[in-house]
């Protein structure tokens, strides 16, 4: 670096010159240099405070003891603290009380979206609308196999449901099956079919689907007179259901309709409560030590099921 002061600015240059243009050796602005030193200092401070240097098995921990997962857990705790008043209140409310309280209702719906998406939507679809032809029940309509009251829905989630219809391939001849298919289609369209009805009564369909063919909710049998089909309204599909049944063990082509049990514990509790009310007793007097073994399976907690029951009820079909 030559000390060349031949230029008028009296600034030393680097001695480099191209076509008469000299490279001057002006210093960087001081504020800029200070910023540079400051950023260097920040790096050092950062390295001391935060995990930074990778070692063989681990890394330096930093004085703050900060970790990503710790920050995540802290934030999660904050969210939970915000939700806690609602969750605590939900725990002591019945599903009917939740429905009546607009604030708790909105909270339940808001906080059930993820719960529903994680546990229910795989079969029943978002918004209670399963993919067309998937054969899962629509939750958004007003047709309920096991009842559409908020308690029925809660029970269906807690205890799960297993559909049941015998296979008739060995019990009916082709003509009888044709006649029954026609009867079912006519019933849905509100057309009377005397011959079909006679066959419906003699072949035992009436035992489950009821004298008026409207289904029996206690058994979960389908209503054959409405416009909603459990599986399909297509004649071939109706025939398939009659021939192979639902969950018929010996039939390989049978339809499968299984809703898993989400809380054995809650199912037992709900049943005990309903029984107590039926007997004119106060459900608060039930001795749960007697009723529960303590090892009942719980895939979802009681509060979660309440929230889901409310959520499903509010799809638009709840009764």
């Amino acid at each position: 670096m030559a000390e060349n002061k031949s230029n008028p600015n009296e600034v030393s240059d680097t001695g480099h010159e191209w076509d008469g243009i000299k490279e001057l050796d002006n210093p960087c602005p001081r504020w800029w240099l200070n910023s540079l030193y400051l950023s260097g200092l920040i790096v050092v401070v950062y390295f001391v405070l935060y995990p930074s240097l990778p070692l063989v098995n681990d890394s330096t921990k930093g004085l703050l003891g900060w970790t990503q997962i710790k920050e995540y857990k802290e934030d999660l705790a904050k969210v939970e603290a915000k939700r806690a008043p609602f969750e605590n209140q939900l725990a002591v409310m019945t599903v009917e009380e939740i429905l009546a309280d607009q604030k708790m209702l909105n909270y339940s719906i808001g906080s059930s979206k993820v719960l529903y998406g994680d546990n229910c939507a795989a079969c029943h679809g978002m918004g209670g609308n399963p993919a067309a032809g998937s054969g899962y029940p629509i939750l958004a309509d007003d047709d309920w196999l096991y009842g559409g009251s908020i308690y029925d829905i809660e029970m269906s989630i807690a205890n799960g449901r297993i559909g049941m219809m015998p296979a008739h391939s060995a019990l009916l001849n082709t003509e009888e099956v044709d006649q029954l298919v026609q009867f079912v289609v006519d019933s849905s369209n509100g057309v009377s079919n005397e011959a079909g009805l006679a066959l419906y009564n003699t072949k035992g369909c009436v035992a489950c689907h009821g004298a008026d063919a409207k289904g029996v909710q206690a058994m979960g049998s389908a209503n054959l007179t409405d416009k909603i089909w459990r599986f399909s309204g297509d004649e071939e599909q109706i025939r398939h259901t009659i021939l192979h049944g639902v969950n018929a063990v010996a039939d390989a082509e049978t339809r499968v309709a299984v809703m898993p049990q989400w809380s054995e514990k809650l199912a037992i509790m709900l049943e005990a409560r309903a029984y107590a009310i039926e007997e004119g007793e106060d459900p608060n007097d039930i001795d749960w030590d007697d009723e529960l073994e303590g090892d009942e399976a719980e895939r979802l907690t009681e509060t979660e099921i309440k929230k889901l029951a409310v959520y499903v009820h509010q799809f638009g079909g709840g009764q």
Binding site: G127, N129, A140, D141, D226, K227, I228, G317
Partner: peptide, 18 residues
């Protein structure tokens, strides 16, 4: 308007929107 489902058929055949 509810996006999923856009509409639902009820037992009496009527259409419901949410």
């Amino acid at each position: 308007h509810e996006r999923q489902p856009l509409f639902v058929r009820l037992s009496d055949g009527s259409i419901q929107n949410k």
